[in-house]
C-alpha cells in the first residue's frame, strides 16, 4: 500500500473548481430515483433513464459519437464503480 496521501489546501482548491463542460468525460449517476448521463462539468443531464443498465448502454453511444472519451459509472452513493474508455466512431 502506498504512503497515505494528504490533501493540501491548494490541491483541494484545484479539485474544487468545476470541470470544463468541454470535457470528453461522461458520468452515469443517480438523480431523483432515476439514472442520468451527464458530461463532466455540466449541470444538465444529457438523458434520464429508469435503470443504471439503460444509462450504461446509452453512454457508450454518447461517448463514441463524441469522438471517444471516458465513461464513469457511479454507484448510488456517488462513488465510481467502473471506468470505461471508448474510442470514437
Amino acid at each position: 500500500m502506498s504512503d497515505k496521501k494528504k490533501i493540501t489546501k491548494q490541491l483541494a482548491k484545484s479539485i474544487g473548481r468545476l470541470a470544463s463542460v468541454h470535457s470528453n468525460r461522461y458520468h452515469v449517476m443517480p438523480r431523483a430515483n432515476k439514472w442520468i448521463i451527464r458530461r463532466d462539468g455540466a449541470i444538465r443531464a444529457l438523458g434520464i433513464y429508469k435503470t443504471r443498465n439503460e444509462a450504461v448502454k446509452k453512454v457508450e453511444d454518447v461517448v463514441r459519437s463524441s469522438h471517444g472519451g471516458y465513461a464513469y459509472i457511479h454507484g448510488k452513493d456517488g462513488r465510481i464503480v467502473e471506468e470505461v474508455t471508448y474510442f470514437g466512431d
Partner: peptide, 26 residues
C-alpha cells in the same frame, strides 16, 4: 453529495490517488 463524488473521485485518480488512497483520506 453524489455530484461531489462524481466530480472529485476521477480528478483524484487523475492526480494518481489510488482507490485505497481515497478510501484512507482523513
Amino acid at each position: 453529495y453524489g455530484e461531489f463524488w462524481a466530480d472529485t473521485e476521477e480528478k483524484l485518480k487523475r492526480m494518481r490517488f489510488t482507490t485505497d488512497d481515497i478510501n484512507h483520506l482523513t
